[in-house]
Design a protein around this nucleic acid. Structure first.
Lengths: 215, 215
DNA sequence: CAGCTAACTCACTAGTACGTACATTAGGAG
DNA sequence: CTCCTAATGTACGTACTAGTGAGTTAGCTG
């Protein structure tokens, strides 16, 4: 048995090459949109060549779909680690909102990909079997919090889990996705630390106030 | 003096041609994004030719900026017609939220242009003098409602007009802008009438609950 | 009606962007 | 050590795409 070089030293390594393509492609698509992204540009920013992109992914569109699949899969995996069910309903939903906020704050590229995919009416997502069968763990969490809150009487508003998720997401998504036009037109950088912290508290208070209803 | 043909019958009419270019271009940019939009495609869908686009607008980018300017100007003009100040604070802010909701519902192309412009980090908006000096009338309206509500004691939360505007916009924007990925992943069409009506009430209740605070 | 210019048409180009044919090599299997 | 194949590199083709050069005409002005 000869000495095996460690993975990082191997000159030929399919997994490593594929992973690098996906990483660089994600940046490129997020920065320039689907049509604006350049396959040649992705290739130039890598150790490897454009030929490899086509060898592994076949086409620009399939590469883009692979990027979406990877991004969504990671996000869903992260969602599954959220644990707020040991908290009382009010604190649970507030914490969930704030974690969602943090999550959006940290995954700018993912937010952009979602925005881009919506420009294209989700046509690529619909082509992916992986994404079609990717559950949404966060909905179950919200459902249980809502049930607990209604049972204890703390939540008065009769809300649906998808709606509540949408309410939280919209706030967090908008702050990140629209920060540039918002900044240009209102002169306020929603991503700046001082605004970020206030808006983080705001999203939590917003959901709690909504669910508690008009006392 | 010879008989004047009416504007619509004139074969040569700069204003009419420019207006048609802008209208078709808005659709094309909204549908395919900045990079995905095709100047030739815009030309083909018109009475006139591609050469005219360059004659009047000079470049694809300047055409795109002109489209943004027109869209934003129209939206701001519409905002100025909003009149809720004869209402009591709670009803005023609720109505404003619902009108904002309707407004987003009606101007899908505009929403998409905003999303697209954010993908490009608002670089085109920043190049436009028109847009830099376009006020935001809605902020004054919100300010006055907040002042009235705080004076009367109905609003407890110490909120800032820009934040409240952001809260309302985010909800309305997200429902329209992200309807495709949301629909694909959660199996719910937020644009369908039954959901639309519920979400419309929801945005109003959300702001009111937030401003009234935890009683 | 003559002349002038803004409005318009047509044919074309230079460069770009996705994708591929073909040659080559690393490195594991036997 | 040899062979075989997955992995990789090079160079190129085809189609598209923004933008333009140069000529033409509608229709207003005097």
């Amino acid at each position: 048995m000869t000495t095996q070089p460690v993975a990082s030293e191997r000159q030929r390594d399919a997994e490593r090459t594929k992973a690098e393509i996906l990483k660089v492609a994600q940046q490129e698509f997020a920065r320039h949109g689907y049509a604006g992204a350049r396959v040649d540009e992705i290739a130039e920013r890598m150790r490897t060549t454009k030929r490899m992109i086509y060898y592994y992914f076949g086409s620009k569109e399939r590469l883009y779909i692979a990027v979406l699949e990877k991004a969504y899969t990671e996000v869903r995996a992260m969602e599954r680690t959220i644990d707020v069910e040991h908290l009382a309903p009010v604190e649970a939903i507030r914490t969930l909102a704030e974690l969602t906020f943090d999550h959006h704050d940290l995954h700018r590229d993912f937010i952009k990909l979602v925005a881009i995919e919506n420009v294209h009416q989700a046509e690529h997502i619909r082509k992916s079997e992986v994404l079609a069968n990717l559950g949404t763990p966060v909905l179950d969490v919200i459902s249980r919090i809502l049930d607990a809150g209604q049972a204890s009487g703390e939540f008065v508003t009769d809300a649906d889990a998808i709606d509540v998720h949408m309410m939280i997401s919209s706030f967090c998504f908008f702050r990140v996705a629209n920060q540039h036009t918002f900044g240009a037109l209102f002169g306020r950088d929603m991503a700046a630390p001082e605004h970020r912290d206030r808006l983080r508290r705001m999203v939590g208070e917003m959901v709690v106030a909504y669910l508690r209803g008009q006392a």
